[in-house]
Nucleic acid binder design. Structure first.
Lengths: 343, 343
DNA sequence: GTGAGCGATTAAACCGGTTTAAACACTCAC
DNA sequence: GTGAGTGTTTAAACCGGTTTAATCGCTCAC
């Protein structure tokens, strides 16, 4: 067998037609007799021919790939349960279509813009996912000026030229608060994520409004950074409060688990002395001691929906692509939250 | 300003030379007068021209991209501290060279081979990283037959056609065992990873031989799967042993943290009743309660070295690319290991 | 019998680079 | 003055597809 892979010309010769005819047959374009199409496809099959991505890329000016730029410190990225599952969902859409995923991990503030710019200018991708959406996110204007299609994960507050795929974090957060209120808690604090992230403020607002719904005020709100160390520091400050909260709602599991460790180290028993809830349902949440009450979304479905939407936008005829709303996150109750024994 | 990006023909016209001359100038090939080269580069600069990746890909038959296939359950992949940092290291090498990273996440046993095949046949990448190397790894033959260059992360026991980039896990494991022995432990157990992985057996063997060095036998060896749930089950079995071990060495942090939770749930105090050590130094290791004694490698450097080596192989003239040996992992002592109070 | 009309097919241009072989200009030796 | 040799430059082929415009063969109407 020859080592060289067959080209469209080989198929054409074999089927006794022109290159153009093969191209037409492959792409199912009308204007060819059915018998000819069959003959061409058979020839292609016998030769094991698959059209060259590179040649197609050049002639149709498409990359057949999508891009994901993760702007995050590698240390923080690890133990983030979102991206692996999200990427899995994306791939489940891309693979059957023969598309690829180009990934970039850049440190915050350092080369983020350059990352997108490179992806666009090198023509590496046909569109990108805009994850970790920020308020007044500069990337929206950047991508607009680069002419690179995009899909935002969650919805920016200002009208955006891009379709949004949304997984509402609020119902989950509200459920956590209601759960704690039902358990009798009245002094409930919140450790929030960085408030420049849309999903972080969404969780914070949901926390506040759910409390208000119950006629309560936040015991305190600490703005942290989603990291373990940040969670610990915030926790220490909360525990040092004159009127110590009886429950803490963290904006993610990592801060919650770390915060739980800090509380335990300070001699508090969980959940007897302090109830703790997280957000994400990361793998460890179930298995730390005590198991962490948290909120579980479906990042895999998120990835699927985002990929499908982005492809719609790319393939589209210019008509607007509708936003997608995913089913909200669910409360997962474990041992880290319990009845308030005495207030 | 025109929306169209300039092509090599535009630059040629502007500099008053032929397309070929521009190509020569760009690639620094000899045979052009210096003054001409300068003129061409100036023209390219003024036009803001950057050669099209797609066109180059087609004519030189290269993708200017590397591939990483992660064969892992997304649930297990999350909270794995290795890959984000590894990818960060890879990118730090690729970005300046204008290369991209194509990522695939596939579930174990499901489409792994297809993943590599697709990457190769679509000409998406010029080479791939072979991570989570297994014994008699079928991917080595697969890639050989696909003609796709590769670098193995760690060294297969059989001679391989690919260069290996190695981070020896043994010194770290040995250090853990020595540390425990010095603390007075004599009944030390091990929770291992799946023994088809090279790095898993390396840790197990190091565990056994380090104990032997101290004149000891393993209290028990549980083969687990690197997951939290697996770590818990193994831990329960170990704790139910007639001669319960006083220390457990886990093959990764995730199993260690989950195992620690299980032990605590069973009423054991750590480290008073049981010492626990992990492997990886994941973000949470420092912050769980008590802080986890573990072993820290440098996945970022691993990624850098792997990318550099793979590029050497791809760019190379066919001469052998030497294996790379990275500095071994270091022991990080925290609160989860302590003196044996009474034996 | 001729031309219009139509479906099927193809030749050739094109995408934007790289690379080969040939042409060119110039100097130098004999 | 001719030929060889050297250093520059270019025209054209090539990579492997897609796409446009033209051509071909055929039927049918008049």
């Amino acid at each position: 067998m020859s080592k060289e892979r067959p080209t469209i010309a080989d198929v054409a010769t074999r089927a006794g037609v022109s290159k153009g005819a093969v191209s037409f047959a492959l792409n199912g374009r009308p204007g060819l007799a059915q018998t000819t199409v069959d003959r061409i496809l058979a020839a292609a099959d016998e030769l094991g021919w698959r059209p060259s991505n590179r040649a197609r890329s050049l002639s149709v000016s498409k990359a057949f790939a999508l891009g994901l730029v993760i702007t995050r410190d590698p240390g923080v990225l690890s133990s983030d349960p979102f991206f692996p599952a999200f990427i899995g969902g994306v791939e489940s859409v891309l693979a059957p279509r023969g598309q690829a995923l180009v990934l970039q991990v850049v440190a915050p503030g350092e080369g983020e813009e350059a990352g997108y710019r490179r992806l666009a200018q090198d023509g590496r991708v046909d569109g990108v996912f805009l994850s970790d959406l920020r308020h007044n996110d500069p990337r929206i204007d950047l991508l607009t000026s680069l002419g690179l299609p995009a899909v935002t994960l969650n919805r920016p507050e200002v009208p955006s030229p891009f379709p949004a795929v949304c997984l509402d974090d609020r119902p989950g957060t509200i459920a956590v608060v209601q759960h704690l209120v039902e358990l009798g808690h009245r002094r409930i604090a919140h450790v929030a994520g960085p408030q420049d992230f849309v999903h972080a403020t969404a969780r914070t607002e949901a926390f506040v409004s759910a409390l208000a719904e119950a006629g309560l005020q936040p015991a305190a709100i600490e703005t942290s950074d989603f990291t373990a160390i940040g969670g610990i520091e915030s926790t220490k400050r909360l525990l040092a409060l004159p009127d110590r909260p009886t429950a803490i709602v963290y904006a993610n599991d990592r801060m919650a688990i770390a915060g739980m460790g800090a509380a335990q180290q300070a001699g508090l028993r969980i959940p007897d002395d302090l109830s703790v809830a997280g957000f994400d349902d990361s793998e460890l949440a179930e298995f730390v001691h005590p198991g962490l009450t948290t909120v579980r979304a479906d990042p895999h479905a998120f990835g699927e929906a985002a990929a499908r939407t982005l492809n719609q936008l790319i393939d589209g005829d210019g008509s607007a692509v509708p936003d997608v709303e995913l089913p909200p996150a669910r409360l997962i109750i474990r041992r880290s939250t319990a009845n308030l024994e005495d207030s």
